[in-house]
Amino acid sequence: MMEPQVIAPISVGEVVQKAQQAKKDGCRLVLISCTKIGDDFEIIYTYEKDLKMTNFRITVKQDTEIPSISSVYFGSFVYENEIHDLYGLPVKGINIDFKGTFYKTAVKHPFSVTITKEKKEGDA
C-alpha cells in the first residue's frame, strides 16, 4: 500500500505564491488537473520532491479568472492551455497562450458540457 495522499485546499489568490514556495523548496511541477463537480471546477496543482507529492486544490466557478503559474514554472503552459480549451476557464498570463487553439475540438470546451447524442435509426 502506498502512502495516503492529502490535497490541501487553498484560495485562488494563493496559487502563484504556493508555486513560488514550491519552487523554492526544490519541487518540480507534476500536474495540473481540472475536474468538473456539478457547476464548480476543481483544479489540483501537484508538486513533487523526492517522490513525495504535495497537492493544492482550488475550487472555482466558470467565470473565475485563474492566475497562470507559467512565470514560475515555464512548463505549466501545456496544462493551462489544456484547462482553457477543454473546460473554458479563463487563465490569465500564460507565457505561450494558444488562445483556444491548443486542442481544436468540434464542440467548444467539450469537458464542461454534457452532450447526449440522439439515438439515430440504425445507430449501434
Binding site: D85, F98, T101, F102, Y103, K104, T105, P110, F111
Partner: peptide
C-alpha cells in the same frame, strides 16, 4: 502545436 488527434477518452 498539438491537438490533431484529440479523442477525449477521459470524458
Amino acid at each position: 502545436t498539438i491537438g490533431y488527434v484529440h479523442r477525449g477518452l477521459e470524458k
